[in-house]
Design a protein around this nucleic acid. Structure first.
Length: 677
DNA sequence: CCCTAGGTAAACATAC
DNA sequence: CGTATGTTTACCTAGG
């Protein structure tokens, strides 16, 4: 026990260049058994925070009004306010709770979200696309509300200013125009802050929904409450769902749980019938589509229809024309599965929103730190939807429909399989006690399918566990280094640098890393001048992993369970075969980052290991004979591999960024300059 | 049902 | 002495 905290504290040391673990605030949810309490706190805590937040908002409004009615005070404050972010700081002091609230959900649900994410087997790009879509929708709605709000506030402001003027006149007013102007500015600032808060509030609400929706017990009713603040489209969806299937829902809830008075806030409700059901029906899962009834802005464009493909999660049906696509809609029943899918989708979105919020915080902190006085009111620019953001500020009576976000046709999102595991494990407590992620193969073999280049970005920024084994990752880290050797600490750094996931729970994964290094023969420790470094024995590495995914059955499984089309499996097999031959399949895809190579390798290895054993390319796969000495002791001089030269390495160099590679080399030395907040 | 791989936790040793 | 680094053992889960 002691050890744990001890190690953790220290372990943060190396990784702390990131500022990471510590800054993240709540690094230790990973606690083994003692974690239970944290889970309990969550829901209740969250509510508290919300209340707190509401209070804060109210308080600020009051305060603002007070200020406005007191010109002098106003002025002083305004002075500071105008010159530097200080005013903001002041305001921030008020806002703190808000931001805290924003952060907290991350603290609360990250694990859950993560689990969900992991279980969903959604490809990162999909998630990103989803996020964009959902954000667009959300913001759309937000805009409207904000506009209204803003309008009101402006009126109010106007009135207040008038009053103020009167007061000033009474006061004899030397505080001429200047003051008035400044007063106005301050007021304006405050308004903006309010707007911002409102926005945050909305985000929070959304998050909360997601949170709640996760909780297995909410049966039936929550649906209604959900409709309250979900983005329009979802709202519509839920409406449909609830309308069209009220009966079902009722039956459902009654049969499963009877009907409960859903207290949204109830922390630990029983199981979610939907999820359960979903799980049970998982096997026969056929993607279902919702709506056609859905209001559609333009007749020939639908968010769920793109590039001739149905984008409903798990459904990749191809439709030549939009007409037939609508046809399909009829086939998709609004049943439990659909709703469950929606829910899952919401979780995904939520997770992404959390991430977004987090990054916003970070950005804000950075800006504050740099004393960047953003002209924009909001210190939290939203990268994803600048458009909607802009419109939100004022004018624009009619918010624009930012629905036209770049959407890729990728939508093989299929929570099905994963969900089956989810159903009973979904509670916060369970998630924890269960320990983080177990299912490896399923995800592992699912993930590689998506383009890595994007995944890399994804894993670097999203707190999702990478679908690779520690061994693969370690190997990758080592091979990626110029010398093909790394110290333990460098390996650590690589992990934290490449995966957001490994910026938390350092004690845990570091232990795992060490464990793997020691355990697997493929990792060879070499005494060096300045210490010890770790290298990879490729032969040994190839030896291990007897399991084969090559079995057609498995491949088939994957594709069916995921709802992937035949194309996919083809691609999969293609990749696999590529891997066998050490062909740099990611060359073209490389987006200009050397690290990409690493992931590519990691994946290739996964594939490799899986496929190897059956392949004819006996050179390396045959465990028995090894053309090369199985163990090499000297490291530096050891080129270690034919593979690295014509394989991945050449990839890197030939692919457009030899410079990057060098840059990369820097990474190893400077370690973790990157990192998280 | 058994076996294996992988993940996690933890005890322990050793070097700095 | 505390920490970092390694090694080893035990237990658990998923999946073949």
């Amino acid at each position: 026990m002691m050890q744990e905290s001890g190690t953790e504290a220290t372990s943060n040391g190396p990784a702390n260049e990131n500022g990471g673990a510590s800054v993240e605030g709540v690094p230790r949810e990973g606690r083994p058994k003692s974690a239970a309490p944290s889970a309990e706190v969550t829901a209740a805590d969250f509510l508290h925070l919300q209340q707190h937040q509401a209070l804060q908002m109210a308080r600020q409004i009051l305060l603002q009004q007070q200020q406005q009615s007191q010109p002098q005070q106003l002025q002083s404050q305004q002075n500071t306010g105008r010159k530097s972010p200080k005013a903001n700081d002041k305001q921030q002091s008020l806002q703190v709770p808000v931001s805290v609230a924003m952060m907290t959900p991350q603290v609360i649900t990250p694990q859950q979200m993560q689990q969900i994410l992991q279980q969903q087997v959604l490809s990162p790009q999909q998630l990103q696309v989803l996020l964009q879509q959902q954000q667009a929708l959300m913001l759309q709605q937000l805009q409207q509300q904000l506009q209204e709000f803003y309008k009101k506030q402006q009126e109010q402001l106007h009135l207040q200013l008038l009053q103020q003027q009167q007061q000033q006149q009474h006061a004899g007013s030397k505080q001429s125009k200047e003051q008035q102007v400044s007063a106005q500015q301050l007021a304006f600032q405050q308004q903006l802050l309010q707007v911002q808060q409102v926005q945050q509030q909305h985000l929070l609400n959304l998050q909360r929904q997601g949170l709640l929706s996760i909780q297995p017990g909410q049966t039936g009713l929550p649906l209604h409450s959900l409709t309250q603040m979900i983005p329009t489209e979802l709202q519509q969806l839920w409406k449909e769902v609830t309308n069209a299937h009220v009966k079902e829902e009722h039956n459902n809830s009654s049969s499963n749980n009877g009907h409960r008075g859903l207290d949204l806030s109830s922390p630990a409700p029983p199981k979610n019938p939907l999820l359960n059901q979903h799980a049970s029906t998982n096997g026969q899962y056929m993607s279902h589509k919702r709506e056609s009834t859905l209001e559609e802005p333009s007749p020939h464009s639908h968010p769920l229809y793109g590039h001739g493909v149905c984008k409903w999660p798990g459904c990749e049906a191809v439709f030549d024309d939009f007409q037939s696509f609508l046809h399909l809609n009829n086939e998709h029943a609004l049943d439990d599965r659909s709703t469950a899918q929606c829910r899952v989708q919401m979780q995904v979105v939520q997770q992404l929103e959390l991430q977004l919020a987090k990054d916003k915080e970070r950005l804000q902190a950075m800006m504050t730190h740099l004393h960047v006085k953003s002209t924009e009111p909001k210190a939290t620019p939203q990268p994803l939807n600048l458009v909607s953001n802009v419109t939100l500020s004022k004018s624009a009576p009619e918010a624009s429909p930012p629905l036209s976000l770049p959407q890729t046709p990728t939508t093989p999102t299929a929570p099905l399989t994963p969900l089956s595991q989810t159903h009973s494990v979904i509670t916060a407590t369970n998630l924890h006690s269960m320990g983080p992620m177990r299912r490896r193969y399923s995800e592992k073999y699912n993930m590689p399918i998506s383009p890595i280049s994007q995944n890399k970005e994804f894993y670097m920024n999203t707190d999702v566990r990478p679908p690779f084994t520690y061994a693969s990752l370690i190997r990758q880290a080592i091979l990626e280094s110029p010398e093909k050797q790394l110290t333990l600490n460098e390996i650590y750094n690589w992990f934290t640098r490449m995966f957001a996931y490994f910026r938390r729970n350092a004690a845990t994964w570091k232990n795992a890393v060490r464990h793997n290094l020691s355990l697997h023969k493929c990792f060879v420790r070499v005494e060096n001048v300045k210490g010890a470094v770790w290298t990879v024995d490729e032969i040994e590495f190839q030896k291990r992993r007897p399991q084969k995914i090559s079995s057609p059955a498995l491949v088939k499984n994957i594709q069916t369970s995921l709802g992937y089309g035949p194309t996919l499996s083809a691609a999969f097999q293609f990749q696999a075969s590529m891997a066998e031959n050490n062909i740099p399949l990611y060359t073209t895809a490389s987006i200009g980052s050397p690290t990409l190579n690493s992931l590519a390798n990691a994946i290739r290895e996964e594939m490799n290991g899986a496929m190897d054993h059956g392949n004819s390319n006996g050179s390396d796969s045959s465990p028995g004979r090894s053309p090369l000495p199985a163990h090499h002791i000297s490291v530096k001089e050891e080129p270690l591999d034919p593979e690295d030269h014509d394989g991945p390495l050449s990839l890197v160099t030939t692919a457009n960024h030899s410079p990057d590679f060098d840059h990369h080399r820097d990474y190893d030395d400077e370690q973790g300059h990157d990192d998280m907040l």
